[in-house]
């Protein structure tokens, strides 16, 4: 393992089997020689296993019922408002549940998705740069082909 420093950070990767053979061997050599590392490894293992033993979480039944209903898609904004209402408000809302609004996915306004034209904007900048600055060096960057990606 010549390209990486042997640091304690490797212990979790060692536990998770995310090291190559060389790094793994280096860590095991260090573990054999260092009680501190062995202690840390045990602690990290315990913590990791405890997190992994956390049970799966099911959402409330009514939540999934709303999500999975055939022609009902929950309006997120309304849902958030509903959850933040005080208890008396919930009673009123419960009474009106039968009149729940059916809103399609498309009713939720979606922001405009933009992907800047990197090459074009790069040239636009160079064009503006050439005004009041060195012209040829700025224009040269426009004249060469732009290459992005590998």
């Amino acid at each position: 393992m010549s390209e990486h420093e042997l640091t304690e950070d490797l212990l979790s990767a060692y536990l998770d089997d995310e090291l190559d053979a060389g790094a793994r061997a280096d860590v095991e050599t260090r573990l054999a020689a260092s009680a501190e590392w062995r202690t840390i490894l045990d602690e990290v293992r315990d913590t990791r296993d405890a997190v992994r033993r956390l049970p799966a979480v099911d959402g409330p039944t009514e939540f999934w019922a709303r999500v999975m209903a055939d022609d009902t898609v929950v309006d997120l904004a309304s849902e958030r408002r509903r959850r933040r209402m005080p208890r008396w408000g919930l009673a009123v809302a419960g009474a009106a549940a039968a009149a729940v609004v059916v809103i399609g996915v498309v009713a939720v306004p979606q922001p405009n998705r933009v992907h800047p034209a990197v090459a074009t904007l790069s040239d636009e900048h160079a064009a503006r740069s050439s005004v009041g600055n060195d012209v040829i060096s700025s224009l040269a960057s426009i004249a060469v082909p732009t290459r992005l990606g590998r």
């Binding site: 922001p111 405009n112 992907h115 090459a119 503006r128 990606g149």
Partner: peptide
């Protein structure tokens, strides 16, 4: 230069 456009970045469409 700082170019400003209204919206969210469509990362899936950005060049590699």
């Amino acid at each position: 230069s700082v170019f400003e456009q209204s919206g969210l970045v469509d990362w899936d469409a950005m060049p590699n």
